[in-house]
Design a protein around this nucleic acid. Structure first.
Lengths: 185, 185
DNA sequence: TGGCCGAAGTAGACACCGTCTACAGAAGTT
DNA sequence: AACTTCTGTAGACGGTGTCTACTTCGGCCA
């Protein structure tokens, strides 16, 4: 395996084990057994390396969509929503990195393509379900964006731990059930 | 004004002008006209200073709740939702700081109290509205958490710029309208 | 009044970070 | 065989947060 690939691999492991704060260029280099300047031979800077890592994150997220049950469109959509939340809760550091504009190069074509693919396939799933909103004539892509945002906020808020500080501590699944109830009637 | 207060003030201005990446302890000290070590006489570290700044952010957000129209509970809730989104879009750096666990001391009592107050008053607003969800017997605090998450995700996703990369670019208000439609029927 | 002590500010050091540059070797091309 | 390009190393630079002396000033008490 080439050094470039090993750097991405090592960074992913470091990210999963020690969080976003631990994915430092020098730390990755040391963990990969190369000198601290070596990564710059394969990436223009930290942002480019982390973009490659985040791109893999989006790809992993997209891969989950391929394993949805072959049942009704409605059940496929709810499964996808659960899958999104599960991914975020299971890989908190990767999820955080994927949405940290300051750590990642937003103009990276591979990264934005992978991110768009996630949203696009989600929009397709939404469009296949006859929700009350759709029946009332709302723009389907707008419904998809709204539902995705709701999902995303649920994941973000839960990882943040904010609800735990409130006077009660709901489970993320319970909140997701309410969200799906609101959108799918 | 004491140095401590001026440091918080200066940090807030720096945050609003140049973003989260610019609120560095040394930079704040220089902008406030003190030596680079002075802030440590008033704060245990960077996290404590930024916590004080974020606490002010939550207070500002809460203050907006006091200016809601005295109309129907339903209109008050939708106004509060718009207010939340407006705050995030108008103060993106502050909004980001408020939810950046790595920059802030999550155990700061003032900070967590301010954050809880925001959620609690929101929950009160939700409880006053007879949504379809409420009528179907869902836990009202769970509905509040779910709706707040939806709002939060909308703000986060929009600031992230993600929807702009997709094949279409909805306005945040349009997406919020759909979200409110889903919850308030 | 004189002495004292703690709070507040300064300057320097340390370790770490990302990035740049100079250098060395290996590989491949003409 | 000579030359160029690629890959890796080592060192330096400016920046960061934090720690540790060292000053300085203001209030307090004998």
């Amino acid at each position: 395996m080439g050094t470039r690939q090993r750097l991405i691999e090592t960074a992913s492991e470091l990210l999963a084990e020690d969080g976003v704060g631990a994915v430092t260029l020098r730390g990755i280099a040391k963990a990969a057994g190369v000198s601290h300047g070596a990564p710059l031979r394969h990436f223009s800077g930290r942002a480019e390396l982390l973009s490659a890592v985040a791109t893999r994150g989006y790809a992993d997220l997209l891969a989950r969509r391929k394993t949805l049950p072959e049942t009704s469109p409605r059940e496929r959509l709810t499964a996808a929503c659960h899958s999104y939340l599960d991914f975020a809760l299971a890989n908190p550091a990767m999820f955080e990195l994927m949405f940290r504009r300051d750590l990642v190069d937003a103009d990276d074509p591979a990264l934005s393509a992978a991110a768009s693919a996630v949203f696009d396939t989600f929009a397709v799933l939404v469009a296949a379900v006859p929700t009350p909103l759709a029946r009332s004539g709302a723009d389907l892509r707008l419904v998809a964006a709204s539902l995705w945002a709701a999902l995303h906020g649920l994941a973000q808020l839960w990882l943040w731990g904010g609800l735990a500080g409130a006077s009660f501590a709901p489970s993320p699944e319970a909140a997701l059930a309410v969200t799906l109830d609101a959108y799918l009637g």
